[in-house]
Simulated assay, not measured.
Amino acid sequence: MSGLAVHTLFDVLAWIAAGAAALWLTRVRKIAFPAATTDLPYLAALILGAGTGAVLFGTLNMIVSGVPAVARSVEGAIAGAILAVELYKQGIGLHLRTGARFALPLAIGVAVGRIGCHLAGLEDFTHGTPTALPWAHDFGDGIPRHPVQLYESAAMALFAIVYVVNVMNRDAAWIDRGFYLAVGFYGAQRFVWEFLKPYGTILGPFTVFHLLSAALVVWAVYMLSTAKKPGDANDRAVAEI
């Protein structure tokens, strides 16, 4: 199977896993997330923003790295989706915070998807820089490299475990603000792994994704600091049946 086919397969698996995680929390565990909208325009904004951000930042990174080609980026998709949804809500005057139920799907989706990036090999251009560490991986060119995709997968899987434990304990802070925690954690761990990737820099030692990661962390911190108290009755929905 080609690298592209493997990547596509795991993209599909990531979406399935993310959807299953969301259904498990709401339908099986009956977690009551803050009130949210899932109408068609909202979903359209989310999907359009994610697709645009994925291609925009993925391609920009390739150009900066001296490999001009169209590419996609999961971090670009996250940032694009957030921006598009926030603009949509501003446009219709919606002041509810609508991301809470996406925390676990985000973590699970990235954890699964990054395994596909690793299995896709050099063709995927998500591999790490050369290293002599014992767990280095040779993608077929004789050069042992950091398996940064697996670093990211493990980090997000760890977040998912911590998130589930807290949510199962009905910790209102994690239920209400989990998406901001997920985005902030994602941005922080991604910022670290970027130093182990062969991407071109855009500002000093920083790559496109260093800057995007920092922006996501800043956004998450801002949203956390301005969030209402956990469990505010005006922001919560009854458990879904």
Rank of each mutant, 00 (worst) to 15 (best):
V162W: 14
P147H: 06
V162D: 11
R236F: 00
A155L: 08
T52H: 02
W193P: 13
V85A: 01
L9M: 10
R190G: 10
T38S: 12
A50E: 04
A36M: 10
F209G: 01
A173K: 15
A17I: 01
I92C: 07
T38M: 09
Y199I: 00
P68K: 07
Y186N: 12
V167M: 03
P198K: 09
G178V: 09
V164C: 12
V192F: 14
V218K: 00
I175A: 06
M223A: 11
G93D: 05
P68H: 09
G116H: 07
L133V: 11
F139L: 15
T131V: 07
N169S: 08
A215Y: 00
V208W: 00
S65W: 08
D124V: 05
D232A: 15
F191E: 05
L96V: 03
A44V: 15
A157C: 05
Y163S: 07
T129F: 03
K30W: 10
F139H: 12
D171G: 09
Y42R: 11
P34L: 07
D176Y: 01
T52S: 15
V55K: 02
F159E: 04
I31F: 09
I16A: 11
V74L: 12
T201Q: 11
V183N: 03
A172D: 14
E86I: 06
L203P: 02
A214Y: 02
V218Y: 00
G113D: 13
A173M: 12
P144T: 00
Y88K: 01
S65F: 04
F125E: 06
F57Q: 09
L23A: 12
V55Q: 02
V85D: 02
Y88R: 03
I241C: 02
Q189F: 13
L212G: 03
I31M: 04
V74M: 11
T126P: 00
A233D: 12
Y42M: 14
I16M: 15
A173R: 15
L56V: 14
T37R: 13
W15S: 12
R101K: 12
W193S: 15
C117G: 09
Y186D: 14
T126E: 13
Y199D: 15
V162H: 03
N166Q: 15
A173T: 14
V110S: 08
A45V: 03
F191H: 02
D39F: 00
Y151P: 01
S153G: 13
L196D: 13
P130N: 05
M156W: 09
F195I: 02
S213K: 01
T37A: 12
A45R: 01
L196C: 11
